[in-house]
Design a protein around this nucleic acid. Structure first.
Length: 770
DNA sequence: GCTTCTACCGTTTTT
DNA sequence: CGGTAGAAGC
């Protein structure tokens, strides 16, 4: 396709934004206004003007967005698109750091720690410092460290900052600074970077090494950034340094869709762009090509009152469309059934495919009742961006061996597999070696490598086991450089003993784990074969680099994507996608808006923007649903409709009454949970133990003999009942006590043994209920 | 050092 | 309801 053709496909707003190629440009793009199209055409236009693909840096928010954009550009200009620097901030700068990291003391094969690794390291540090780990929990610690790194505050800066110090004293975590410092040191010693380090150290590298800065400033003459509203300070500073020389920076974003503040995203980056670059040209894309008028107007209402925004008026020439149905359900599972039923009916009525439907929710936990309902009436579905394949335990175990082969100083990988499979190197040995490493300021691996030089009071046998392990890892390391990824991976997987370990596990889960490992090895084989002839040898190192920054969605197979299935996902991961029919579920106070944001932010602006994103995913019809009660940790909690429902003018909505009655008791006659405030079906009958006369709240009643021998349908036990236990045989219940789920029963068995059983784990069958 | 049992705890969103 | 950390017991 030649240039004239593709520019003519754009409207005048879009075309102007594409053709203004030089100098700082900000494109404010409303939802559904063809933002991606403008970005791709702009890049294609640059290439057609003769700009070298190697000198264009395009940063997107997800790997998927980068891939898609690359494909679309390739469709416009051909294979030259392959030479673009295009990817997420993290993957692009990880790539840059691999080349330059030696300048800041990191090896080129540095490991990238994921969140799990980081938390586990923090946990170890807290333990070693003998701090009460109730106030030093890994997740909050990592959260704080992460936001500090995002603000480019080093451990040293932190220690010297009076404000931070007094804040810590007030929060009773005066050792935080020390933890931060130790964490940083340990990462360095392990030759590892966490997620935020990839951006942090890119900043440091560019800041402290003018020659490198100049090199990349000249390399990236044109910089384009997608989803600019979601960039954080660290990313902003990288861009600022790189663009300083040529000033050809084009950012595209929608302040109304800024939903990542929790991760440090700073909407001010967008609001202040014009201040940063005085001669910025601003373009606005205000026509929405995606949704009906009803949806566009209702969505506009949602964010109308937000204070932080750039003036724009999103409008559409599309048809008016249906009103937005609001469905009320009594329980979360009924909400699921209603949605499932609606999808079923709509699909038949409108002749639509399953893939035209999406169900969005605020939290991942909400997917379960939805899945159950869909499964029950046979609607195929897929969870978009769920847990990543590479996060599974068995896969992470194997990857830990791979990581060790590439970088044996990687402490988290080492700890993970040092005794898996069991090789008699237990916790106390690891603790002793950790102390030695700390005392000598060396890595754990170095201690193990030189174990005879240390007097740790270990048994000879243990020392031999350690040497054996060291030699094993060294043999893995030796394989890597001379073999391709598959050969090395296969050798390591079987040499580590993991394959054997998994093979002996014949439980269904075990078989599944084994299949996953096979899947990983197949992936390695593909990776090794797929390599282009003149590309570098597809080593294990390259493979690990490829997968380190993948998210759940990135690794699904092509055919997975094309299957005709309803998609389920969080609103966050729905950004950038669109569907004909969208269900936004769980519109309840304290869920959406979330409890956290209701408690510590009075404005709820970000939650509203999130709702805006949810609504504007829909092309033809958006449906809102909520439930009056929801299960949480096994008990039902009553809910109120979300305030957001009231913020949409009533003439955009119509309320559909619940078509279901509250659920009838099934054959298992459930006694309602403890009288939680607002239990909507009247207060539950109270059962009392005949012996103690204590209330037997919250234990389910079962018909005698109906409960299977597992803990899924525990019956309410009362004194006098005759029960049968899997191992101990028959017995009589003497008394029951405690509150579910930790309720206990004392049972006298026929063999004369008196046992106290924790009901949640006891496998009991009621055989007689007098 | 390894296995089994029990008490406790969790509440966003993710590159 | 699940997951899991740590104690107790072997």
């Amino acid at each position: 396709m030649n240039e004239r053709n593709f520019l003519e496909e754009l409207n005048s707003e879009q075309r102007a934004a594409v053709e203004c190629t030089d100098g700082p440009v900000m494109i404010i793009a409303g939802a559904g206004s063809g933002k991606t199209r403008v970005l791709t055409y702009r890049i294609a236009h640059l290439l057609n003007k003769g700009v070298d693909a190697f000198s264009i840096l395009a940063l997107t928010f997800t790997n998927k967005a980068a891939r898609e954009m690359k494909e679309r550009i390739a469709g416009l200009v051909g294979p030259e698109a392959g030479n673009l620097w295009m990817g997420t901030f993290h993957s692009t700068f990880a790539r840059l750091l691999r080349k330059e990291s030696y300048r800041i003391g990191f090896p080129p094969n540095f490991t990238i720690y994921d969140t799990e690794d980081s938390k586990s390291l923090l946990k170890n540090i807290v333990k070693e410092m003998n701090l009460n780990d109730n106030s030093y929990k890994p997740s909050p610690l990592l959260g704080r460290i992460s936001s500090l790194k995002t603000m480019l505050v080093s451990a040293k800066d932190y220690a010297n900052d009076a404000h931070y110090n007094s804040e810590d004293r007030a929060m009773h975590r005066e050792h935080f600074g020390q933890i931060y410092e130790t964490y940083t040191k340990r990462l360095f010693k392990s030759g590892a970077m966490d997620f935020d380090d990839l951006l942090y150290f890119t900043n440091i590298l560019l800041r402290d090494h003018p020659d490198i800065l100049l090199k990349y400033q000249d390399m990236f003459r044109y910089i384009l950034v997608d989803e600019y509203q979601d960039t954080n300070f660290s990313q902003f500073m990288i861009l600022r340094q790189l663009a300083a020389r040529h000033q050809n920076i084009c950012v595209v974003g929608d302040d109304a869709q800024s939903i990542y503040a929790f991760r440090g995203a700073n909407i001010q980056n967008m609001l202040n762009f014009q201040k940063q670059y005085a001669d910025t040209t601003v373009f606005k894309l205000e026509q929405n090509y995606r949704s009906t008028q009803t949806i566009v107007n209702a969505a506009n209402q949602v964010i109308a009152k937000n204070r932080d925004q750039l003036a724009k008026k999103v409008w559409t020439a599309n048809e008016q469309g249906e009103k937005i149905p609001v469905l009320r359900a009594f329980t979360d599972s009924e909400e699921g059934r209603t949605i499932a039923q609606n999808i079923h009916d709509l699909r038949i009525k409108a002749g639509s495919a399953y893939r035209e439907f999406a169900i969005l929710y605020r939290t991942n936990a909400q997917s379960r009742p939805l899945e159950e309902a869909l499964r029950k009436i046979g609607i195929p579905y897929r969870i978009y961006g769920g847990i990543s394949f590479y996060q599974r335990k068995e896969i992470k175990d194997i990857l830990a061996y791979f990581r060790l082969a590439l970088n044996p100083h990687d402490e988290e990988a080492l700890r993970r597999v040092i005794n898996y499979p069991k090789r008699e190197i237990g916790d106390s040995t690891v603790d002793k070696m950790t102390v030695a490493a700390y005392d000598n300021d060396i890595s754990l691996w170095t201690v193990m490598e030189n174990i005879p030089d240390f007097d740790l009071g270990l048994q000879n046998r243990t020392r031999d086991k350690i040497s054996e392990f060291v030699n094993l890892i060294k043999s893995f390391s030796a394989i890597v450089p001379t073999h391709n990824a598959f050969q090395a991976g296969d050798f390591i997987a079987s040499g580590s003993g993991i394959i054997k370990e998994l093979f002996t596990d014949r439980t269904p889960e075990g078989v599944n784990r084994m299949e996953n490992v096979q899947e990983l090895l197949n992936g390695l084989r593909d990776f090794s074969l797929r390599a282009e002839p003149d590309a570098p040898q597809p080593t294990l190192g390259l493979f690990m680099e490829d997968i380190a920054l993948l998210t759940g969605e990135d690794q699904n197979k092509e055919d997975e994507h094309n299957l005709d299935k309803v998609l389920l996902m969080t609103i966050h991961s729905a950004k950038g996608l669109e569907f004909n029919y969208v269900f936004v579920s769980g519109l309840e106070e304290n869920l959406f808006p979330s409890q956290m944001s209701v408690m510590d932010r009075e404005d709820l602006e970000e939650e509203r923007r999130l709702f805006y994103v949810a609504l504007t995913r829909a092309r033809k019809k958006a449906t809102l649903t909520y439930s009056m009660s929801r299960y949480r940790y096994g008990s039902s909690v009553s809910c109120e409709p979300s305030r957001f429902l009231e913020e949409i003018p009533a003439d955009f909505l119509y309320t559909v009454p619940s078509s279901y009655e509250p659920r009838q008791p099934r054959e298992i006659n459930r006694i309602p949970r403890p009288a939680s405030p607002g239990y909507s079906n009247g207060s539950p009958p109270v059962m009392r133990s005949p012996l103690t006369n204590k209330k037997l709240v919250s234990i389910n009643k079962t018909q005698a003999g109906a409960a299977p021998l597992n803990n899924e349908h525990l019956g309410a036990l009362a004194a006098g009942m005759i029960v049968e236990h899997e191992r101990f045989g028959r017995g009589e219940v003497l008394k029951t006590e405690g509150k579910y789920p930790d309720s206990k029963a004392v049972v006298m068995f026929e063999n004369g043994e008196k046992k106290q059983l924790l009901l949640r784990f006891a496998r009991l069958k009621v055989v007689e209920n007098p």
